[in-house]
Design a protein around this nucleic acid. Sequence first.
DNA 1: GACCTTCTCACCTACGTGTTAAGC
DNA 2: TCGCTTAACACGTAGGTGAGAAGG
Lengths: 211, 211
Amino acid sequence: YDKKYSQVVRSPYEENVQVDLQDLEVWDKFSAAKTEMIVTKPGRRIFPGYRVKFSGLDPNAQYCVLMDVVNVDEHRYKFQNGEWIVSGRGEPKIPQKFYVHPKSPSSGGKLMKEVLSFHKVKLTNSFAHSATEKFNVHSMHRYQLRVHLIRTDDVTMIKHEPMSTFSFSQTTFFTVTAYQNHEVTKLKIANNPFARGFRCDGGKTKNTRRF
Amino acid sequence: YDKKYSQVVRSPYEENVQVDLQDLEVWDKFSAAKTEMIVTKPGRRIFPGYRVKFSGLDPNAQYCVLMDVVNVDEHRYKFQNGEWIVSGRGEPKIPQKFYVHPKSPSSGGKLMKEVLSFHKVKLTNSFAHSATEKFNVHSMHRYQLRVHLIRTDDVTMIKHEPMSTFSFSQTTFFTVTAYQNHEVTKLKIANNPFARGFRCDGGKTKNTRRF
DNA sequence: GACCTTCTCACCTACGTGTTAAGC
DNA sequence: TCGCTTAACACGTAGGTGAGAAGG
């Protein structure tokens, strides 16, 4: 049992493929506090950043890498007395959509040499603000990130080819319009460079993390 | 005779295709003063921005859009007594390279609805700083921008398909490491939002131009 | 000296943060 | 009232400007 994965579905072509979630320590810290992600109308990035690295690919084959955001369950939640509890039925699921990583398609050799970052992805609660990098979600629901691999050099064929899917239990999160758990707020401020202005030391702490 | 084009080469598949250069008034102003573009080691953007709009495409066909930077002649130039004059033989031409617009491939229908911007392109005089969006050029030479259209949905087939090429006489420019003609400097400061700090009014003039 | 290049700088644009107060 | 959402804001990151001094 590999504690890094909550779920793996492999297409027959990618039996030896493995995916590593980057910044695992950071994801673990957030996960322990129950991660929250802000949702806004214009769209808000997720933090920690979703960054993965592939191994075990065929160096000469062409691949497309995708990600999506999926419901973890069918509930609506609320934060009460310091913990998240179920609060009725969830909104109907939003039709699935994929975000194709801009480096797709790419050869297995190239892919294995670099970390793929999905930092441009945003969460929005407004259907009016549609864009390729925006995922529509409901606030006060629970979601999870997934990454997909398809052995093809044709982005338009994505829906007609066998696909391998990888997901990590650490990337589960609650959507909110304002942070509920102050522990999460503290972790965001401590780790996200863009929130450096809110650090106790006035932003003097260096942080060279890349997204 | 259409004064907007200096040269058009059409592949047999794109007889009705037309390209419009955006910000034509600005390009014309610079052109009248003999446009200069700064070249640096890390790479410098071009200004005015190179933005084009297509019409007459097949709405259902897939296209790739490319651009490149080519020599206008074989001379080296210098700026003397307020004008550009030939100053010996130019450096050997740099091997041609294409910058593939990130929205490639795209359907003709989508392409005709939007303005394609090449604002990420940079000019560099250092061969060490190579990148997809950087063009290697020699300083004190004369170049021109070109845009290309290929009817294909496969970016890797770009060099093996018939290509239409469009270029505008207004996009001819001299490369410099420091501006020679103060008239050009004034136009840059007056029109480029990033140079607003140098405007006489202290940067209060609004300018909502998009790249 | 004349000409061209390089580097550092102050000053911008653009946009990613949580905070706060107001709205519903 | 309470719970959740929205918009304006100060304060960061990241990087595009020409100026000016220094270098070759």
